[in-house]
Design a protein around this nucleic acid. Sequence first.
DNA 1: GCATAAATGATAGTAATACTATTATATTCG
DNA 2: CGAATATAATAGTATTACTATCATTTATGC
Lengths: 223, 223
Amino acid sequence: MDKLHIHIEVSPELYLRNPDSSTLGRKIVTNSIELIEILGFEDFTIKKLSTKIGSPESSIYRYFESKHMLLFYLIYWYWSWIEYRLVFNTHNLNSRTDKITTAIKILTESVEEDSSFSHINEILLDRIIMTEAVKAYFTKKITKKTKQNHFSVYKRVVERVSQMVLAISPTFKYPHMLISTVIEGAHQQRFFAENLPSLTDVNPEKDYITQFYTELVLNDIKK
Amino acid sequence: MDKLHIHIEVSPELYLRNPDSSTLGRKIVTNSIELIEILGFEDFTIKKLSTKIGSPESSIYRYFESKHMLLFYLIYWYWSWIEYRLVFNTHNLNSRTDKITTAIKILTESVEEDSSFSHINEILLDRIIMTEAVKAYFTKKITKKTKQNHFSVYKRVVERVSQMVLAISPTFKYPHMLISTVIEGAHQQRFFAENLPSLTDVNPEKDYITQFYTELVLNDIKK
DNA sequence: GCATAAATGATAGTAATACTATTATATTCG
DNA sequence: CGAATATAATAGTATTACTATCATTTATGC
């Protein structure tokens, strides 16, 4: 597996003080992930986080400008981590089909192992992204410009996989649309399977969501 | 066009007093749509709505239990309206491919005409669903049971179109997954086109999103 | 057309929350 | 050891979702 001790750096625009540079900072991040996963982002409050870590609210605000920025930090971290895994696991593959298949696997599978190379629990973070990330795109609490800057990693991931699509089918007109549909779709289907099963087709096979989206993509680009 | 004076009834579980039964009730609905479209659901407040319509907050709460329930009401209305259009426009088609193509068109196109058979502006409502509906699924403010009850129309729409998929390809394993991917994907792509264009492939052709999803579905089910 | 009931208005209040401000105390570092 | 820096302790503000109460208007039955 890819249990290297890589270090993920988050864009400084997302924090006031780098939470990765102190024990308190890391405590904030670790515990916010645990709390958001349990409560959901709406019911998650800085007050609750502050009591959980035993530090005052004002200390948390020294690291993050706002509750929303903390969520953006987590999202950024997540996509950096996905990008790393994407590059690491596909770069030495020769077959174009293998590349795209591996990429779709990484984008659609639920994370079930905490690679524990950091203070961040990837299993919980993956669940947060599944349920909370959409809200972050759609919120008007953050300006367009800020969003566009801060979704840069996500965009890069979409771009990378779009290139894999074009490598197979150079005239395909909508690679970004296809890939962002797959990414968001897979998250949503996982959520539906847990919460609104009649909107999806729950299946005992572990990787049925990955299978579905892999076939969807291959059928579409190999017309 | 389908400018019939049909009347859409919303499940009584979603309101305290039926907003369709009084002028104040209709005023609340009409104006909430306008406000949510402008402000987004987060910045939309009952106070702002109450000043807009010149009635106290307490009057609004006599119709809707909460801000979230008001949103659920709008979502329910929207999907009832979509279901009506779906049934109306497909039932007299003979070709299976025509049926599914028409269905996908209805599910993926942006609404550009207010059919004005009611106090509800469908153009604005369509935009609200595009940006705010996902938040409604994902919120923990509403219990699972309530959600499952209240998403019944949405589920019925998915079910109807799933049946059209099965009519073409009876052994297709994931019709619900395919259709909910299309519905949510199309909304998201429209949002991306306006707000985060690098995540999609913006195209001058008016109906490129519909085209994309139509081909995606046909390629997938006609293997 | 009048009594009764129902809907609405006017006003006040509560608890929670995101975030700010200030000052005191630790902690780190040259 | 002294100075800068990070954290704690505490208080406060504005906003918001929602509740409560009572007066007034409007609709309804007879």
